[in-house]
Simulated scan of single mutants.
Amino acid sequence: MAINPFDVNWAEEQVEVMHRLRDVAVALTELNHHLASWMRLSSTDSNALGQIIWADQAGEPLSPADLGRKIGMTSGATTALLNRIEAAGHIRRTHEHADRRRVTLRPQPAARESTRAFLAEAGTEIAGAVLSAHPAELATVTAFLSRITAAAAAANHRLGS
């Protein structure tokens, strides 16, 4: 059953949660702008580099097509973006699969270190907030944000189909 969010009688607490989710998204976008400035990149290029680094750290490196889907760019625009950040020395494209046509995106060590230095500078307040939270609070927030992420992913999938 599809829910029309404009037909729901939202409780005050539910509206407050939606406002806080918006505030988090805005604050994280602003941090990405600071990272872009730190790395001397555009915000779009910085976002792409962050996606490449996070995926690599998770042991799930991205292909150019995967990256394009994540950042909402066409294959041509993604190629131009990758050319820029590769020319700037931040990433390399490798052929690690049995199918040598498949490209994997990997961050260069200097990009990883520069991003790490930025996070050491910029992440102080966020680290403090997470470290000061009670484990039960963290478990509740993790469960809730997992549901929100799954709902957003489902909406993105539906809208992209």
Rank of each mutant, 00 (worst) to 15 (best):
A11I: 06
A11H: 14
E12H: 05
E16Q: 02
M18D: 03
R20K: 13
A25S: 11
L28Q: 12
L28D: 05
E30M: 11
E30C: 02
L35C: 00
M39W: 00
M39C: 11
M39G: 01
D45L: 11
N47D: 10
A48Q: 01
A48G: 07
D56K: 06
D56N: 14
L62W: 02
L62C: 13
S63L: 00
S63C: 06
D66G: 01
L67Y: 01
L67Q: 00
L67I: 05
L67S: 06
L67N: 02
G68D: 01
K70S: 08
I71T: 05
M73P: 05
T74S: 15
S75H: 12
T78M: 07
L81E: 08
N83P: 03
I85S: 01
A87D: 09
G89A: 10
I91R: 02
R92K: 09
T94L: 13
T94Y: 04
H95L: 11
E96M: 12
H97F: 10
D99N: 11
R102G: 00
T104I: 06
R106K: 11
P107H: 14
A110W: 12
R112H: 12
R112T: 15
R112F: 15
R116F: 02
A120G: 08
A120W: 14
A122E: 11
T124M: 00
T124N: 02
E125C: 08
E125A: 15
I126H: 06
A127F: 11
P135M: 04
A136D: 14
E137H: 13
E137Y: 05
A139L: 14
A139M: 13
T140S: 12
T140Y: 10
L145P: 00
S146W: 06
R147A: 09
R147P: 00
I148R: 08
